[in-house]
Design a protein around this nucleic acid. Structure first.
Lengths: 188, 188
DNA sequence: CATCCTATCGCAACCGCTTGCAACAAGGAC
DNA sequence: GTCCTTGTTGCAAGCGGTTGCGATAGGATG
C-alpha cells in the first residue's frame, strides 16, 4: 500500500533533476520518460494535463485543473484528470494537500517542499518554508519518534492584519459556517 | 441591549461550565438554554443529534453522525445534521477539522483543544496536546505574528512503528492514491 | 387556546471527487 | 505493418457534503 523505500526515493531524485515546472514542452519528454520507466503510458490526456500544469504557478484546486483541461479539450473527463494527478504525484511531480475547506489543492513540485499557513480571517495563504517546517518536524521526531511530512503541514489561524481587524469588528456573522472563509468562488 | 448579559461571551463560558459530553440527558437542558439565549430553537432533530453526540467519544466523521442519527430516526436528513453541527460548533459545543482524506471529523468539545497527528502508514491518529501545539504556535507567533489555532493543527507523517515496517516492505502498489490510507471503512 | 414571526426542516439538485467496468489504445514483440 | 498484453479512458453511479427554497413548526405573545 504505502511507498516502499527504494523505488520511491529513486523517483524523487530523478524528478528533482528535471522539474516539470522549469522547461516548456521539453518537460514532456521528461515526464514521458518517467512514465515509461515505470511501464506507464504517455497518452494525449496526460500530455494535456501536464501542459496545463506547466502553465500553472502556485496552487490550483482539482476542479480548476479539470476546467483548464476542458478549455483545451472540452471532452476532458474529471476521473481521468484526478487519476492522472494521482500518477503524477506518485512520480513526485506534483503535490496535493487539503485546503481549509477540505478541497484538494495541487501544485507543481517546487524547488523545495513546504507546508501551508492559512488565515481564517482573510483567507490568505502562505507557504511554510522547509526550514521552518523542519523545526516542527524535529520537535515531533524527538518527542514522539514521528517523521513529519513537511509538505503536509497545514497551520490555520489568524494573521497579524486580521487579528487587529477582528478585534475591532463586533462579531462574525453567525452563519459563517465553521467560521472559516467559504469555498472560493469557481473561477470559471 | 436590554440586559447586559453579553450574549456571545456568556455563551462560550457557559459551554465550558457544562460540557455536553459530561452529563447524560441533563446536557439537553444546557444546550437548550444555549440555543434559547441566542434566539435559536430546540427541535427534536437537534435533540437527536445532541443525543448521539453525548454518546460519542473521540472523533466521528460527519457521515457517521448522520448514520447514527438514522439509527435512531430513519427519516433523518443529512442537511439537517450538518446544519445543526454548524450551529453546535458556533456555540462552541463541537469542533470539526479535516482528516487526511479531506473528510470532516467532529468531536465533542474536549477538556482542552488539541491538534491531530496522522500516520500515513497505519492510518493511526493521535492527539496533539495543547501544550505541545503551543510550541508550534509560539514559533509562528514570533516569526510571523501569526496566531495559530491549535485545534486546527494537523500533522501528517510516519510513526515510529511504520517507519521500520516500511523500510522492510518491498514496494507499494502504484494505485495507492496519494500514498495515504483510504477512507476508513464505515463503522456501521 | 389562537396568532404570528421566523428559525428550521426536508427535498432536490448540485459540487468535488472516487470507483467499477467495459471498451480502447499505447507500445513492445514479431 | 500486425498482433497482443495491459495500462488508460470515459461513462455512469455513488459518496460526502452544501445550498436554495417552499413548507413546517417552535415558542413568545395576547
Amino acid at each position: 500500500m504505502t511507498q516502499g523505500a527504494g523505488t520511491d526515493r529513486a523517483v524523487r531524485e530523478r524528478s528533482a533533476e528535471r522539474p516539470i515546472g522549469a522547461a516548456g514542452p521539453s518537460a514532456w519528454t521528461a515526464v514521458a520518460d518517467l512514465l515509461h520507466e515505470r511501464g506507464l503510458r504517455w497518452t494525449p490526456q496526460r500530455r494535456r494535463l501536464v501542459d496545463v500544469l506547466v502553465g500553472t504557478d502556485g496552487h490550483v484546486t482539482g476542479s480548476e485543473l479539470v476546467e483548464r483541461c476542458r478549455d483545451v479539450d472540452p471532452t476532458t473527463t474529471p476521473s481521468t484528470v484526478y487519476r492522472t494527478l494521482a500518477v503524477l504525484e506518485d512520480l513526485g511531480l506534483v503535490r496535493h494537500h487539503h485546503g481549509m475547506d477540505g478541497r484538494e489543492e495541487f501544485h507543481v513540485l517546487p524547488d523545495e517542499e513546504h507546508g501551508h499557513l492559512y488565515c481564517r480571517g482573510c483567507g490568505g495563504e502562505w507557504e511554510i518554508a522547509a526550514a521552518e517546517a523542519a523545526t516542527i518536524a524535529e520537535a515531533f521526531h524527538r518527542g514522539r519518534a514521528f517523521d513529519v511530512d513537511p509538505s503536509h503541514v497545514t497551520i490555520v489561524g489568524t494573521c497579524a492584519g486580521c487579528r487587529e481587524g477582528l478585534a475591532a469588528e463586533p462579531r462574525a456573522t453567525p452563519e459563517s459556517r465553521w467560521s472559516v472563509p467559504r469555498p472560493r468562488a469557481r473561477t470559471g
